[in-house]
Simulated assay, not measured.
Amino acid sequence: MALELPQGRWCAVVGPNGAGKSTLLRVLAGLLPCQGQISLWGRPLHDWPARARARQLAWLGQQEGGGEDLLAWDIAMLGRLPHRPWLADASAHDQAIVADALRSMQVWALRGRRLGELSGGERQRVLLARLLAVQAPLLLMDEPLAHLDPPHQADWLAVVRAQVAAGGTVVSVLHELNMALAADDIVVLRAGRLLHHGPAACPHTHAALRAAFDGRISIRQLERQWVALPQPDRSEPDHAD
């Protein structure tokens, strides 16, 4: 089944553990081979020169490692590499973009700290700032909310909405179904297969979500927001007689 992700929208990729969410995102990023064809802005992904593709598509993987001795500022500055000549110093424009990215993710005060010294949530926000510093029109994020507390999840949501409002596109793998239900569109995966792709508010999308999780969730509207509520497993008796 073909999957088309429209420009200027936020799509959340969801599904149970082992559904293939991270694999799909890595395929979209060109990091894994694909039996079919991946196109970016109507052009086959493999036809893009590496630097040009890196300016169009920014990637944040799951639990990324490395760079433990680098300062948060230097980590975020890595996002500017696709825009700079080889071995060129960062320009004033690069520095301004990185500063804005760090402030957007509420880690400006941590810019002089080493990545290895930061908490899990602080580290994740620095990596998100690096992603934003690329200023790519397409952002691919695998579990971007890992280790983030609710206020910083709200900051992330504001950044995503700003990206989309400016005409950008966001694709994010999320375990947080309530956050996924705030997206424009949802891709539902199960056992490595595309179960459904549709608007987040669509009843068919909600039905696909329930099916993907074996009926273990219900979806309700609360104060104009859709929320997913966990349901107990009824396959076993609640108690022994």
Rank of each mutant, 00 (worst) to 15 (best):
R123G: 02
L145R: 10
A158S: 15
Q106A: 15
D69V: 02
P49C: 04
L138G: 00
P199H: 09
Q153P: 03
L189N: 04
Q95A: 15
D47N: 07
A72P: 02
Q225R: 15
R26W: 04
A109P: 03
L189W: 08
I219P: 00
Q62H: 15
L195F: 07
A72W: 02
C34R: 07
Q7N: 02
E143D: 10
P150D: 07
A136P: 00
V126I: 15
L128M: 05
G18E: 09
A240K: 07
P6T: 07
V170M: 08
A92L: 10
Q153E: 09
A200W: 05
G61W: 07
Q63F: 12
Q7H: 06
A228K: 06
D155P: 03
G18R: 10
L110E: 12
A200H: 07
A54C: 02
L140T: 03
L102M: 13
A211Y: 12
A201S: 11
A228H: 06
L131G: 00
Q225G: 03
V107E: 09
R224A: 12
A101G: 03
D149H: 09
I75Y: 11
T169H: 05
L31E: 12
Q95P: 03
R55M: 02
Q106S: 15
R55N: 01
A101P: 04
P199W: 01
V170T: 05
A228W: 09
W86Q: 12
L115S: 08
Q135E: 14
Q124Y: 07
D238S: 14
R80L: 06
G79D: 05
I217M: 11
L25V: 12
L78R: 13
K21M: 09
Q56W: 01
A58K: 07
M141N: 06
A12V: 00
P150V: 11
Q56K: 05
E68P: 04
A88P: 00
N178I: 04
D142G: 10
L229A: 06
L57K: 01
H204Q: 15
Q7C: 04
Q35H: 13
